[in-house]
Design a protein around this nucleic acid. Structure first.
Length: 426
DNA sequence: TCTGGGGTCCTAGGACCC
DNA sequence: TCTGGGGTCCTAGGACCC
């Protein structure tokens, strides 16, 4: 059996851990740049605040209802996520945990007695809540896709399920599939959902009745076939071991304001390259290709939000590297080539790909000083990690940061910065 | 009048996830 | 006035090879 464990309204829950006075209050968390609403606690959901809606549109309602607002605090969420995942690894064994996202993990439970699964996951849920303060929901079923459906039922009916739902018989599975709209199936996005509903396929149960040929033809080939098998209880989406490395690493951001100066664009690109290179070194990789994109502002159209056109370009590096300096130079050159004076830019990004293990990079007689470069980057990473972000940085990344994102409602990084520790007065 | 039949590799773009 | 930031996988189609 598989389980999916999902932290409820994760970002909101993290904020509430350190502000217990907000426990019964509605709160929301905003995306970078305070642009969109990306997390709402149950109370905020009940007020009709939707996911991913622009903050400014919801602002009147938020103020009227006294909803507490937070900018996203990824240091805090990342640290609490790590604590939750560690508990899972302790209880079911590290090799049986697949960390799927910051707030979700799949578990493999074949080594437990099927009779005891309900008790096991109930205990797990209570332990996580007691040790971290984060509430979770858990779904258990024969496949990942069915576990997702079980999890959704657990979350939707908390009173009845107490956050845990197990699908362990053909009857419970059939019942769950009939209660699940096709758009709520894992792997069915809005495009496929529209297509299916137009054909009279409304529930996960309806979807399960389709033929393999049909889904192969209309739901993305082998992707659709996998989905169908999973709904029928046949495993088609394997557990991944957590060790796999990223094949692509990106750092992209909206700017705080529109940017018109090439100098600012270059600083932003150098900064994003620095971030991306850090991620690359953390997984012991070297990139052989770097690409840069810029997005300019579209004419204002209030009904349909659209980004302006994306312009992008890439460079194949002379040899794979993880050295920030060797990556900044081509990245900035790409930005210069893409930049057009007179345009207003909203967003930019850097993507590293063609990633190979750093130790396997061949030495090149004509590219000197590699080992020195590696030593330098290690020093910089160590200083930045132990002191604080960006104690040491490259000059190209600039100091003015005219483009930097807005964050007006930031909570303290309670668990990862000494000077922001949670304080108790007595 | 008639113009092969395999392969591989790469990129762009679509669809999905949280 | 103000609309996130990552990722993955798959397919189609073009270029090229013999």
């Amino acid at each position: 059996m598989r389980a999916i464990i999902d932290c409820n309204s994760f970002y909101s829950s993290c904020e509430k851990v350190f502000k217990p006075a907000l426990k019964q209050k509605p709160i929301v968390v905003l995306s970078n740049n305070d642009g969109c609403i990306i997390a709402r606690c149950d109370r905020a959901k009940k007020l009709g605040i939707d996911m991913a809606t622009p903050f400014f549109q919801m602002r009147p309602l938020i103020e009227q209802e006294g909803v507490e607002v937070f900018s996203s605090n990824y240091n805090l969420y990342g640290d609490l996520s790590r604590r939750v995942m560690e508990i899972l690894q302790q209880v079911v064994g590290a090799s049986n945990v697949e960390v799927y996202s910051v707030d979700e993990a799949f578990l493999s439970l074949y080594h437990f007695d099927p009779e005891e699964l309900t008790l096991l996951v109930r205990t797990l849920r209570a332990t996580i809540n007691q040790w971290t303060g984060i509430p979770v929901s858990i779904g258990v079923a024969p496949t990942k896709t069915l576990a997702k459906i079980a999890n959704r039922i657990a979350k939707k009916n908390k009173k009845h399920t107490r956050g845990v739902y197990v699908l362990d018989s053909p009857d419970t599975i059939a019942d769950a599939l009939q209660r699940t709209a096709v758009k709520d199936v894992w792997g069915v996005g809005s495009r496929y959902a529209d297509k299916l509903v137009n054909l009279g396929i409304h529930t996960a149960w309806d979807l399960r009745q389709l033929s393999e040929d049909w889904v192969r033809k209309h739901l993305g080939g082998v992707v659709g076939v996998r989905l169908l098998k999973e709904l029928k209880g046949e495993e088609a989406v394997e557990m991944k071991d957590g060790l796999d490395k990223k094949k692509m690493i990106a750092t992209t951001r909206m700017f705080g304001h529109t940017v018109t100066e090439l100098k600012d664009i270059k600083e932003a690109i150098a900064t994003y390259t620095t971030r991306a290179a850090e991620k690359l070194r953390r997984q012991g990789g070297a990139a052989s290709l770097i690409s840069v994109f810029l997005i300019s502002q579209e004419k204002i159209d209030t009904t349909n939000f659209r980004h302006g056109p994306t312009v992008s370009s890439y460079t194949v590096l002379p040899q794979p590297t993880s050295n920030t300096a060797e990556l900044i130079t081509p990245a900035v050159r790409l930005a210069e080539a893409l930049f057009q004076a007179g345009k207003k830019y909203k967003k930019a990004g850097v993507t590293l790909s063609g990633i190979v293990p750093d130790e396997m990079v061949q030495g090149d007689l004509f590219l000197q000083g590699r080992s020195l470069g590696r030593f330098l980057m290690e020093m910089v990473d160590n200083i930045n990690f132990s002191m604080r972000d960006d104690t040491v940085k490259f000059a190209a990344a600039g100091t003015r940061r005219n483009w930097k994102m807005q964050q007006s409602y930031h909570s303290p990084r309670y668990t990862t910065r000494w000077n922001e520790l949670f304080e108790i007065s007595c």
